[in-house]
């Protein structure tokens, strides 16, 4: 018996150690990037364009990333929400619905580099959209779509059934009920899901590298069919192909900005989620 108690103690210590591992890694990455990149965060770095590969700032990269995720969400947002509505409110329990779900899951499992290759073959060459903001954004949209579908479906499912009953009992049609009551009640949840998808799109490198541009462009695209710079691809290029301290400093700066945008989106998403949960608790309490 005593033996078991001692064993329990050692097991506990080991478990504590493994559990703290992910926190330690997270903190290590954040601190390291923050400390090394902080010095680069000048107005000049954030507002000028790069030149001669390893000089200048990352303005077109920041804006380009925002453009890309914008195009991505214009595609994946609405389709994801509509698909989520279908799966939660309309889909009958049958083989067709099973197939729909199977393909949503399958798309989620496609490695991002394969999406990149597909974007290159289909969007860039076959559809002649060129290496461009449009191709890159759309390819990112393909990647994010399963997340927006699932997030919307979950958020819509979470809306209490009593809202639907009340609306239908007033003689509202099914679509009126969804549009006026269900979707509005689910909106914060949907937005949270879309934001998390956005966070995923912002950091994606392989897809953008193959379809949107080399990352080092020093100008912003004048049309949607021109190449566009982006932070992740810039970071990849400058970190793997630049070997001077100038290049490394810029890589740290770009990594910090990327991490910063990612964190802001995530914090915002979780605040929204907490607000949403609280609001619903008030209702039931």
């Amino acid at each position: 018996m005593v033996n078991e108690q001692v064993k329990e103690k050692y097991v506990k210590i080991f478990l504590y150690f493994t559990a703290s591992f992910s926190i330690l890694v997270l903190i290590a990455i954040m601190f390291f990037i923050a400390i090394k990149g902080m010095g680069m965060l000048t107005v000049e770095f954030l507002t000028t364009a790069p030149y001669r590969f390893e000089y200048g700032g990352i303005y077109p990269q920041i804006i380009g990333t925002l453009y890309l995720t914008g195009v991505c969400m214009v595609f994946a947002g609405p389709i994801g929400i509509l698909a989520g509505i279908y799966l939660s409110e309309y889909a009958p329990v049958n083989i067709i619905t099973k197939i729909l779900r199977f393909f949503v899951e399958s798309l989620a499992g496609v490695p991002s580099i394969v999406i990149g290759l597909f974007g290159l073959a289909f969007l860039v060459y076959y559809m002649h959209f060129q290496i461009s903001l449009f191709s890159g954004g759309l390819a990112l949209g393909f990647m994010i779509l399963p997340w927006t579908v699932r997030a919307s479906e979950e958020a819509i499912r979470a809306v209490p059934f009593s809202y639907r009953e009340a609306s239908l009992a007033l003689g509202a049609s099914k679509w009126q009920t969804i549009k006026e009551v269900v979707a509005k009640a689910a909106a914060p949840g949907i937005v949270t899901g879309l934001l998390l998808g956005l966070g995923k799109a912002i950091g994606e490198t392989a897809v953008v590298l193959l379809t949107a541009g080399s990352g080092l462009e020093s100008f912003l695209p004048r049309s949607i069919f021109e190449p566009v710079a982006s932070l992740p691809v810039y970071l990849y290029m400058i970190a793997t192909q630049g070997h001077t301290s100038e290049a490394y400093n810029r890589a740290y700066g770009a990594a910090l900005v990327l991490l910063g945008i990612f964190l802001v989106i995530n914090v915002f998403a979780s605040l929204l989620r907490n607000y949403y949960i609280k609001k619903h608790r008030v209702r039931f309490g």
């Binding site: 209490p160 009593s162 809202y163 009953e165 009340a166 609306s167 009992a169 009551v181 509005k184 009640a185 609001k279 209702r283």
Partner: peptide
């Protein structure tokens, strides 16, 4: 209905 179910409006 049994439980009051006003819309969140």
């Amino acid at each position: 209905f049994q439980k009051p179910n006003p819309f969140p409006k």
